[in-house]
């Protein structure tokens, strides 16, 4: 307990307990919380998988099913709108990114600081650039591979000199900046949220720390969801840009297909969500 007034505010942003694995310096707390977040995602995933395979007569989905299915349906729709079809690699990637980042962000809300050095056992792994860089590079390298495989080596790289060859440096720069912006946007938001929590924890309780804490955590939840959504959406959009081509005509050739089946599906999906 901090007593009535904090004598000092002990915040060490960006410092991690480390271990040496195979000659690499590893932030052990990030690794642990990554494993925890991944385990939660996979647990929820396998739970929903078990619910799905269970045969029910009335086809009424459970709440967990509705959460997964609304996310999967929404991502599928986004991917279909932007890529023209539900791509078997892009859609699962966006789903994985969304759920993993969401759970990872929300780990920040778990009060898990203890010990004499105020060791944070479960910091949000997304407040470590190592994870955000890893995910962003995974996503952007996938985008590059997707672009080259869709349009061919020449077709993909020719768009770097479009519409004018003089823009080549800018185009290359844009491509290289993509993973950095993806990674640092997510990192910055979640890292700042963690610092805010640490600062709020230093407020004396009689000055309203619990209220501020609850309010900020609610707000941080919203930020966490928003950042997860943005990361996944931008990844899909990068795939769309890589696949769509250098001139705008190709994009209009394949408008988002909305046949009655899709509308029916959407109407059906939207209906049960408020009941959750």
């Amino acid at each position: 307990m901090t007593g009535f007034a904090p004598l000092e505010i002990h915040i060490t942003p960006g410092e991690h307990p480390t271990r040496e694995w195979f000659g690499l310096t590893v932030n052990i707390d990030t690794v642990i919380s990554t494993v925890v977040a991944g385990a939660i995602v996979l647990l929820l995933g396998f739970l929903v998988r078990r619910m799905l395979t269970r045969e029910t007569a009335d086809h009424v989905p459970t709440k967990l099913q509705i959460i997964w299915e609304s996310v999967v349906g929404e991502v599928n729709k986004q991917v279909e709108d932007n890529l023209g079809k539900v791509h078997p690699f892009v859609a699962p990637l966006a789903i994985s990114l969304f759920f993993f980042i969401l759970i990872a962000n929300w780990l920040e809300l778990v009060p898990s600081e203890f010990g004499p050095g105020r060791l944070h056992a479960l910091p949000a792994p997304t407040s470590d650039t190592n994870l955000t860089y890893a995910m962003a590079i995974f996503a952007v390298v996938s985008v590059w591979v997707f672009g080259i495989r869709t349009k061919g080596f020449k077709g993909y790289f020719s768009h770097f000199v479009q519409p004018y060859p003089v823009l080549l440096p800018l185009n290359v720069l844009e491509e290289l900046v993509k993973p950095v912006t993806l990674a640092l946007r997510l990192f910055g938001n979640i890292f700042a949220g963690g610092i805010m929590l640490a600062l709020i924890a230093a407020i004396p309780w009689y000055a309203g720390m619990p209220i501020a804490n609850v309010l900020w955590k609610l707000f941080d939840m919203a930020i966490g969801g928003l950042q997860a959504f943005i990361f996944a959406l931008l990844t899909v959009l990068y795939f769309a840009m890589a696949g769509a081509g250098h001139d705008d005509h190709e994009e209009h050739e394949t408008p988002p297909v909305t046949d009655p089946t899709d509308q029916q599906r959407e109407a059906h999906e939207k209906q049960p969500v408020p009941a959750a």
Binding site: E15, L24, L119, N130, F191
Partner: peptide
Amino acid sequence: MIPLEKTNNFLVPNGTFWVE
């Protein structure tokens, strides 16, 4: 107790990157 490393620029990835 796990030692805290003091000299670390948190914008530069380290070995954790590969693990992640």
